[in-house]
Amino acid sequence: MRFHLICKWRSVRLSTMRSSGEPPRIDLLPGTLDLIVLRTLTTMGPQHAYGIAARIEQIAESPFRLNQGTLYPALVRLEQRGWIKGTWQTTESNREARYYAITKAGTRALADQIDRWQRSAGLVNRLLATESD
């Protein structure tokens, strides 16, 4: 079953590469990118934007290619809210990069967001389960 969750407001688009024919688009719900970034930072520790993008692509399992620039608004938003904090560090390959780490406020916010996501996802899933019967 295919479905579109379309959100016009500040939607973030995960899209397949143009070469793979019919592009299945999945628009993320607003705020879910925040959740994804925060979760990635808790599981992996401090990461730079490229690292976060690579992690999301890896998790996505299918040949999705994230338009990596779309991460930046989320990073600004989270940093302005005080949920993450960026510092300049050097990578293993000896390149400089801005590493983002989750703050205490960010950890609290993540718990809150996970809770909210599970509740709304649970509702949608139950709804779909009853309808497919």
Binding site: A49, Y50, Q68, T91, R95, E96, A97
Partner: peptide, 11 residues
């Protein structure tokens, strides 16, 4: 500017 340049280099 600096952050994006770094990002491109990593890519």
């Amino acid at each position: 500017e600096r952050e994006l340049a770094a990002h491109v280099l990593l890519l």
